[in-house]
Design a protein around this nucleic acid. Structure first.
Length: 891
RNA sequence: AGGCACGUACGUCAAUGGUAGACGGCUUCCCUUACAAGGAAGAGGUUGGGGGUUCGAGUCCCUCCGUGCCUACCA
């Protein structure tokens, strides 16, 4: 067999995914066990406009690790993929393309525009699904969903109608966040507040029938044209005499009242606030309380309206601002302008400054839905957040302060609101136009032009994708899903809403657990973002180091924020190469070997290193299962790395090498080779959820029949469907004896290194060991010890007469090892070397003894702890004593 | 403005209140017949500062310093 010396990730990545997908191994139907437990994940649907970024790669890796682990453990697994129609982003993207042709969406008209979006979707909207295949994501493509397709749209309409009938969805005229660029309303969660340095303008408003004035402070002077009152705090004695006074609003000739409201903070600014109910959310609320007029002076294009006055009508809001200031200056009513830091609301997508406007929109009442989610948390503690802190609290706090959700959007791309209007203005909400006609008793209906917020359909994702509102088999089988894996920034936008709708419409929580991933930051600790251009493209990393190495790096990130560190990926690339070469060795000596998992459990007389590796394998498998079930990905990766590299490669392969590579063919050699190959095969299975490509590539090269998990009997062979090792008995005796063998070999290597004895120089190794069991263990491993210490002879005895000119090291359990080095030993240096070791031990002993000497410790610490400390002291002291002996012998 | 996290080796990160670890990097030696993307052996820490609780603190409490994140209607 010809196996290259270096692992080529690209080669493996090209060969397996298609076969997996076509064989149906990703679909739950592959599992033939009718009693199999079910494991489900629905993917957070990426935007159809999106391409893969590090956040996706992280989430997908974790979901794939879980899914592959559960699948190999015999679960009926479904990882359901899909894509979100992403209303605003997609509409913007297609509009931009149109602009290049010199057209706007209005030139096309709604119908043609939407057609155009669909064409775009079919041509270039599947980029991310291609990239997910590269990642190795074992999603069931046969169930792939898109939020705009008919069955999901049906679910959207169903939910809308039901909530409308209950009075939880309503239409109303309220102040909303308006984006003048995108020409649509936005929910509170779609605007971001950014700190900004600006100016605070102090304007003087004359008081009628008086020569006095009040001064108000504002960051947006242009809104004064829409002022309908000024307000002061009722407790503010400075302004008590304003009661009943009228203000002459400059530039407008309007007379406006003074109102008294607790909202005003007397300590800020002048303590007098100008009130513009039509253009500020707080003023709007205050206006309602005091029955104030709403004068609209800014229109949806952010231009001034005729109501702003002839001098301003048609002017841009910022131009108007300058003009207002100019006028105030001219009238000598501008008191001062000061520099001021404040936050400004911007459209999350296009960064335009939001203009609060009064507008007729659809809203969803959230109080009862919110209570469903809060009750679920308080009564059943669901969903379970991982990590629990701080996310459980963040989630509940947010729910407690939840306000109504603006669900309509003035876009064309999205789910058109299933509401129709009759000529007389009657509103009909229905599941379809026919239904609406029936209800209205007329065919002359006009459908509402708005669409729903993209997150409306996302909120239904865990059940709409499984066929709801139909009572499908999939819904019965896979809902509630097992775990949701997502980033923390959409806990409110998405997670909470899924919980609420899931409870309301299916009556059960949509997922048991919510795993919140960490964030991958750039090397400077900054968030990766398109605008900063500091993002690392996962596909570049795949190309450079391979998908498997990247996945291992990402899996380790888990739920902690981590700075991107390419070195880490490189080290896992090296790990992949190590795996490759370990397998290469096993395969080079596979003649006569077969994979027999039963040898791992049968009670047979085996050599120490065989018993040891089986024990290590069992323990590692057990611990990895536990770690994965607890979402401790970091721990699982560490365990795999150490098991494979340290235990399997550095020790087991080396210890079994002489048997495996022996010239003598025969059962002894065959069995050694079979054990090696079997352990390798088990290790590949453990690695597979993390490193699907290399493990499959190697597994396919292993000789003979390889067993699949019984649930997948008869399926096309793939490591994907082999049973995940569950772990078995741990052989404490073998582990402890092996530790001593390792200690002995390390001690000799240490002597070699410290005394600069070249590896090529022959040495003798003399071992004195009082403990008979260990003496036997050493004796029966003389060949291995000799090989690994590169010694010409190894003598093990209960008493050795080592020459004085020997380098020595103390072994635990009453023994020492001596390496005679006539001519190379300087007695003074050797004494110093041993004394250095002694010093280290002495400082440890001192520390422990002072602890033990403390009567409080002996009294209050658990007996077990005291016992442990005592026995450690004994051990250390024994070691010191032995060292003293060696030092004395040198004198 | 409030709230919440975080601060551990040169770097990135681990550590149910019980002797502080891993990987990379670094130093020395070695192309030993799976692998130099490798092997062997090392060096490296008052766990941001200070105080407290405890027999015992990286871990719990207080405080200061530093860094992030989220929420918010201060015009």
């Amino acid at each position: 067999m010809d196996i290259p010396k270096q692992y080529d990730p690209r080669q493996a990545e090209q060969h397996h995914y298609d076969r997996w997908e076509k064989s149906g191994a990703f679909a739950p139907e592959i599992n033939k066990d009718p009693n199999a437990e079910v494991f489900t994940i629905v993917i957070p649907p990426p935007n159809v406009t999106g391409s893969l970024h590090m956040g996706h790669a992280l989430q997908h890796t974790l979901m794939d690790v879980m899914t592959r682990h559960k699948r190999m453990s015999g679960f009926r697994t479904l990882w359901l993929p899909g894509v979100d129609h992403a209303g605003i982003s997609t509409q913007l993207m297609v509009s931009r393309a149109l602009k290049k042709e010199g057209k706007s969406r209005h030139d096309l008209g709604r119908e043609k525009f939407v057609e155009r979006v669909w064409t775009w979707k079919h041509e270039s909207g599947n980029q991310i699904t291609v990239q997910m295949r590269r990642e190795g994501a074992s999603v069931d493509w046969s169930r792939e969903k898109f939020t705009m397709e008919e069955d999901l749209s049906r679910a959207v309409r169903e939910v809308f109608v039901r909530l409308y009938e209950e009075g939880w969805i309503y239409r109303g005229n309220r102040i909303v966040n308006w984006c003048p660029t995108d020409q649509t309303v936005l929910s509170d969660l779609e605007v971001e507040k950014l700190p900004q340095s600006g100016k605070l303008y102090y304007l003087q408003y004359p008081i009628k029938n008086s020569d006095r004035h009040v001064t108000v402070a504002t960051t947006r002077p242009e809104t004064m044209l829409g002022d309908t009152a000024v307000a002061v705090n009722p407790k503010d004695e400075r302004y008590a005499d304003l009661k009943g006074q009228t203000i002459l609003l400059p530039l407008t000739k309007r007379e406006i009242p003074v109102v008294f409201d607790e909202y005003v903070d007397p300590d800020f600014g002048t303590g007098v606030v100008k009130i513009t109910p039509a253009h500020d959310p707080n003023d709007y609320e205050l206006g309602l309380r005091h029955n104030l007029d709403q004068v609209v002076v800014i229109d949806p294009q952010a231009k001034m309206t005729p109501e702003a006055g002839a001098a301003f009508a048609g002017m841009d809001r910022y131009q108007a601002r300058d003009k207002v200031i100019e006028e105030f200056e001219r009238l000598d009513l501008l008191e001062k302008i000061v520099d001021y830091e404040f936050s400004i609301s911007k459209c999350e997508r296009c960064k335009t400054v939001i203009e609060p406007l009064i507008s007729e929109q659809w809203f969803m009442k959230m109080d009862q839905l919110r209570d469903l989610a809060l009750d679920l948390m308080s009564k059943e503690r669901k969903p379970r957040f991982v990590p629990e802190t701080p996310y459980e609290k963040i989630y509940t706090n947010w729910l407690e302060n939840l306000r109504d959700w603006t669900i309509s959007r003035q876009l064309w791309w999205g789910h058109q609101i299933p509401a129709w209007y009759t000529k007389t203005g009657e509103v009909i909400v229905a599941r379809s136009e026919e239904e609406a006609r029936e209800q209205a008793g007329t065919a002359e209906l006009v459908q509402d032009q708005d669409v729903l917020d993209t997150w409306f359909s996302s909120a239904l994702w865990p059940f709409s994708t499984l066929g709801w509102p139909n009572e499908t088999e999939d819904l019965k089988t896979f809902y509630p899903t097992s775990v949701l894996v997502t980033a923390r920034d959409i806990i409110f936008l998405w997670v909470s809403r899924m919980v609420m709708t899931g409870m309301k419409f299916v009556g059960k929580e949509p997922f048991e657990d919510v795993f919140i991933t960490g964030t991958i930051l750039d090397p400077q600790g900054q968030r990766m973002s398109k605008t900063k251009m500091n993002g690392v493209d996962p596909l570049d990393v795949f190309d450079k180091f391979g998908v498997d190495a990247t996945r291992l790096t990402l899996a380790q990130v888990g739920s902690t924020d981590t700075r991107w560190n390419e070195k880490q990926v490189e080290s896992y690339r090296n790990f992949a190469n190590k795996i490759w070469n370990a397998a290469r060795f096993c395969l080079l000596y596979a003649d006569g070997a077969e994979i027999k998992p039963q040898i791992l459990t049968e009670n047979k007389e085996l050599a120490l290193h065989d018993r040891w590796i089986i024990s290590r394998l069992n323990k590692t498998a057990r611990d990895i299962n536990a770690a994965l079930n607890a979402y401790e990905f970091h721990a699982a990766v560490q365990m795999l790395y150490h098991f494979f590299w340290d235990d399997f490669c550095d020790w087991y392969i080396e210890l079994s090498k002489s048997d495996v590579t022996s010239d003598k063919a025969g059962p002894h050699r065959d069995e050694a080779r079979s054990r090696l190959l079997t352990v390798l095969e088990q290790a590949l299975r453990l690695l597979h959820p993390f490193m699907p490509y290399i493990t499959e590539e190697l597994w396919q090269r292993l000789p003979g029949d390889k067993e699949l998990h019984p649930a997948y009997a008869g399926a096309e062979p793939t490591i994907m469907l082999a049973a995940f090792p569950q772990g078995g008995p741990v052989d404490e005796e073998a582990e402890s004896e092996m530790d001593k063998v390792i200690e002995l070999i390390s001690a000799v290597r240490n002597i070699r290194s410290e005394l600069n004895v070249s590896p090529s120089q022959n040495i003798s190794v003399l071992v004195e060991m009082q403990n008979s069991r260990l003496r036997e263990a050493f004796a029966s491993n003389v060949n291995q010890i000799q090989r690994l210490t590169r010694a010409s002879e190894v003598v093990v005895s209960d008493h050795v007469n080592a020459p004085k000119a020997s380098a020595k090291a103390v072994l635990s359990s009453n023994g020492y090892v001596a390496v005679p080095l006539a001519g190379l030993i300087d007695f003074d240096d050797e004494t110093k070397r041993l004394k250095r070791k002694k010093e280290k031990l002495e400082s440890e002993a001192t520390k422990l003894q002072s602890q033990l000497a403390n009567p409080d410790f002996a009294q209050r610490a658990p007996a077990e702890k005291v016992q442990q400390t005592q026995s450690r002291i004994n051990e250390v002291q024994l070691h010191i004593k032995a060292l003293d002996q060696l030092i004395e012998n040198l004198q």
